[in-house]
């Protein structure tokens, strides 16, 4: 297990170095001479020495200076990152809570009415653009029914977002509805595979009832590919957050990125891109660790 983890961490680090190289290369190509001042001291010359000095700055938390807000990118990040984590984290959690029973239900009733109806519903949500979905939700639940707020939580920080469930519900729902179809479809097909496995028959031959077969034998083995999928959907969820945060006027990373891109605030764009890159790499790393925890074959094989 440790060998496996060490190998995965090392691979992740290599990918991260490549990410920083790309971001830095983009940064140096950015038009506008004002940038030189933003980038910090440049005693060294040549690409690699300059890259290393920039990397040094980045590692010390200096991501540059926002042209627009007139404050360090890191300050901006510190304010928006926890809010986005709260939003997307809740959304993924909700999506899983819905997608797991939906996928299992579909697998058990493969090609029956329930399966078709659920597939149609989840695909409808998946296929609807998030700005349409968000707007419809606002119109129905905030404007007409007045059940929830039409704007995302405005209180600062992670706790501020999490505790304001009235305002949080609609943006979370918009993001979650997009991903439910993704998760449930994967779970459906992998549960169908698991259901056809010989060990499920073995469990039935032991006298296990249907619920026990599904919980103990099918679900755990079916979740394996979904765990990988969660890691791989991190970029998609973050992209969704850009749109959703703009619709709901929610000051998170997506919102800031959007605003910076519109106003040519390149240090912010690239600084945030770097952080998102780190997030994606970390996501797939966590997925691998989760996979190893769930599947003893990976845990011991060490490869």
């Amino acid at each position: 297990m440790t060998a496996y983890l060490a190998r995965r961490v090392l691979q992740a680090l290599v990918v991260l170095v490549v990410v920083t190289l790309i971001v830095y290369a983009l940064l140096t190509r950015v038009p506008g001479s004002a940038l030189g001042a933003v980038l910090g001291p440049h005693a060294a010359s040549g690409f690699l020495p300059r890259y290393f000095s920039w990397l040094n700055q980045v590692l010390h938390g200096n991501l540059g200076f926002s042209l627009l807000h007139n404050e360090p990118v890191s300050t901006l990040l510190a304010a928006s990152l926890p809010r986005t984590v709260a939003l997307t984290g809740t959304a993924v959690l909700l999506a899983l809570i819905v997608a797991i029973p939906v996928g299992m239900l579909q697998a058990v009733n493969k090609n029956k009415l329930v399966d078709h109806v659920l597939r149609a519903l989840t695909l409808l949500c998946y296929g609807t653009p998030s700005f349409v979905l968000g707007s419809v939700l606002i119109l129905v639940f905030a404007v007409k029914l007045k059940w929830f707020g039409g704007e995302g939580p405005q209180a600062p920080g992670f706790v501020g977002v999490i505790t304001d469930w009235r305002d949080l519900t609609l943006p979370v729902l918009t993001l979650a509805l997009l991903t439910i179809a993704l998760f449930s479809r994967y779970l459906r097909s992998s549960a169908i595979d698991s259901l056809a496995q010989d060990y499920v028959r073995t469990a039935r031959a032991k006298g296990a009832g249907e619920r026990r077969v599904l919980r103990r034998h099918v679900l755990r083995n079916s979740l394996l590919p979904v765990v990988t999928l969660i890691g791989l959907t991190v970029p998609q969820i973050l992209a969704g957050a850009v749109v959703v945060e703009s619709i709901f006027n929610f000051q998170g990373m997506g919102y800031q990125l959007w605003y910076a891109a519109e106003n040519h605030d390149f240090p912010v764009v690239l600084g945030f891109t770097l952080v998102i890159g780190v997030g994606v790499v970390a996501g797939s790393l966590l997925a691998d660790v989760g996979y190893a925890l769930l599947d003893p074959r990976v845990r011991y094989a060490g490869r």
């Binding site: 496995q197 010989d198 060990y199 028959r201 073995t202 469990a203 103990r216 034998h217 755990r220 083995n221 769930l294 599947d295 003893p296 074959r297």
Partner: peptide, 10 residues
């Protein structure tokens, strides 16, 4: 087939 008839994660 005992290889596939046993649950690999238990």
């Amino acid at each position: 087939d005992p290889a596939s008839s046993l649950n690999p994660t238990m």
